[in-house]
């Protein structure tokens, strides 16, 4: 992951903000830290109560990136924001299942499905 580019791109779908992860691999510590800071900043300034994180571009995630997601989830709960994840490929989904995080997060296949689930 390079250091200069944005890690997430945000857009509205109905009354939800969708944050699309722009990296294909979430595995290097510095990049994950930057990705986390962008997500935390987004949660802090979010005007709506619905957030979807879209992983359609991501082919690899390490446990450090799962750690960031758990913190994002916690911050969302603290602000009363509903959170859903989407676009997770089968390999990464296996990591969610192994860690039982599939029971912690609301996970949907597609973006619209995720928005409507909130």
């Amino acid at each position: 992951m390079s250091n200069a580019k944005a890690r997430i791109m945000n857009h509205y779908v109905d009354d939800a903000v969708v944050a699309t992860c722009m990296d294909t691999r979430l595995n290097d510590e510095i990049g994950i830290q930057q990705w986390g800071e962008e997500l935390y900043g987004l949660v802090d300034r979010l005007k709506t109560k619905k957030l979807v994180i879209n992983f359609q571009n991501v082919i690899f995630m390490s446990s450090s990136s799962l750690r960031v997601l758990i913190t994002v989830n916690s911050r969302c709960k603290g602000k009363g924001i509903k959170l859903a994840l989407c676009g997770i490929n089968d390999n990464i989904m296996e990591a969610f299942k192994i860690t039982r995080l599939d029971s912690v997060f609301k996970i949907k296949k597609g973006e619209m499905e995720a928005v409507k689930s909130l």
Partner: peptide, 22 residues
């Protein structure tokens, strides 16, 4: 154990679990 209910939302401790799972 990050799989225990009291730890399920604790951020750390999943690396070894993923290694064993995969």
């Amino acid at each position: 154990n990050p799989l225990d209910d009291e730890n399920i939302e604790t951020p750390s401790g999943r690396g070894t679990l993923l290694i064993r799972g995969f």
